[in-house]
Amino acid sequence: MSVSLPPRGRASASNPHNRFAPTRSVAEDDGWFQDETPPSRATEVRSELAKTVITRNNSPDVGFDRSLNPYRGCEHGCIYCFARPSHAYWDLSPGIDFETRLIAKTNLASRLEEELQKPGYVPQPIALGINTDAYQPIEREQRLTRQTLEILLRYKHPVHLITKGSLILRDLDLLGELAGHNLISVAFSLTTLDDELKRIMEPRAASPGARLRAMRTLHEAGVPVSVICAPMIPMINDMELEHLLEAARDAGARSAGYVLLRLPLEIAELFEDWLQAHFPERAVHVMSLIRQSRGGKNYDSRFGTRMCGEGPFAELLAQRFRLASRKLGLDHRDTQGLDCSQFCPPGAQLSLL
């Protein structure tokens, strides 16, 4: 089976049509180009004037009811990213387009303030950077995540952050001040300690060592940090689970979670192509274990099972996680949570005069 390699610095080797595309075309190799070195692919960033920026959800599988994403698409390029199918809504491919054709919500700051100032707004922690990473490389220039944190600090609004980007240390001043008011928690997504596996699986995300150093720095600055081992992929990185948890504990994590690989919609095809390109000798076995954990399918979207799967492999993984978390002291949860009582839109006091 002939499988194409991805462009340099990217995870996806293809740009499949999105599920809404009305027509489809197929490229055929005529033999004229024999260069085995894949070309590079530049990142394009377009601006969007968003109508709203706070997204609501009622999923019982996640611990928040609202989230905010400064960007659409993600330059980190993680091959397994569950957000890839969302690019289809902009008539873009969940493949290389998701990694290279990015959208920045340039009016995010003004829209966020408008939504926080609405009469009757009731604060609950906002999850920042859920669908795509708020600290992906384009944040260096766009600074939308920093603008968001500045607003949330000014309004004393609680926020949960999840990232695999070391750029988060740029905003240590804001994060430290938020932590001083019990308004922030930060979770690092950690998938492997193997730099080579990281390179092909999450090409533009921070290295494992950089993530652990960032975690340690935040911890030492008084910012509460946790780790999410996600996703755990059968026969690819699941054997690292206990080592990941131990490394995170040593870096200051005080709690942990995990997610079994999810392959909704177009991701299944992209992931199988990636397996064939990098792990052809075990691709069939990997997919077999995934399907055994998903009721015989590539993905099972049911609440309650979509994050952890079911069946022998999924149950063993869950058991390993419980035992390791308990041994390392990562199995407790902060029952107090973040403080929503301090929320106060600037100028709100004037209404009492």
Rank of each mutant, 00 (worst) to 15 (best):
T37G: 05
I236E: 07
C78G: 10
D133F: 13
Q349G: 15
A27Y: 15
N15Q: 08
D273F: 14
H160P: 08
L317A: 10
V259M: 14
I138E: 03
L183M: 10
N298E: 01
V159Y: 11
H76I: 08
L197S: 04
A277H: 11
S288C: 11
T106S: 13
A247G: 02
A348M: 14
S67N: 05
A253C: 03
L241Y: 06
E272Y: 12
S110R: 15
D300C: 09
G180P: 00
V122D: 09
N237P: 09
G63F: 14
H243D: 01
G129P: 04
T148P: 11
L212Y: 05
V159E: 03
D35G: 01
V186H: 05
G222F: 00
G329T: 06
H285V: 13
V45M: 05
L263G: 03
L270S: 01
D273V: 12
V284S: 14
R146L: 06
E315P: 12
E315K: 12
D30S: 06
G252S: 01
L92Y: 01
C74Y: 10
T191W: 13
S325F: 11
Y155S: 04
A283H: 04
L144I: 07
G311E: 09
T163I: 02
G120L: 14
P231T: 11
S288N: 01
F343L: 02
T52H: 11
